[in-house]
Design a protein around this nucleic acid. Structure first.
Length: 108
DNA sequence: AGTCTGACGGTAT
DNA sequence: AATACCGCCAGAC
């Protein structure tokens, strides 16, 4: 990775915030991006999270969905791991989308 | 160096 | 309400 000082900080913050997501709750890329001060860079959040899948850092990336509550990242996750992890936390996933998403939404 | 794409989201039509 | 388009940033070709 390039990893300039600023970039590294951005990713690190993403991991930190995602790790703070309570079990059984979910959040959105936009919420994280906004919390970091870059509300328009939600894509970077998702991109950063993808790195964590290959990285040694564990972050509950399965708790992060898009603003629609849809598990867009489930394609990148191996198999249906994302859905299984969510259901393991009492989060119901219907048609690749979090049920009662609005109620489960957690904002840092 | 130019162009396209992508775990997104907001605004415009 | 549904669809299109644009902005953001980084990576791949």
């Amino acid at each position: 990775m390039k990893s300039n000082n600023k970039d590294n900080d951005f990713y690190k913050r993403v991991y930190e915030v995602v790790n703070r997501i309570p079990a059984g709750r979910v959040t959105t890329y936009g919420a994280i991006a906004a919390y970091l001060g870059t509300p328009k860079s939600a894509r970077m959040v998702g991109w950063a999270l993808k790195q964590t899948l290959e990285s040694e850092e564990y972050v509950p990336a399965h708790r992060v969905v898009n603003r629609n509550g849809m598990l867009t990242g489930r394609h990148t996750f191996p198999g249906n791991t994302m859905t299984e992890l969510l259901e393991a936390e009492n989060i119901k996933v219907i048609n690749n989308k979090v049920a009662n998403f609005k109620n489960l939404l957690w904002i840092p």
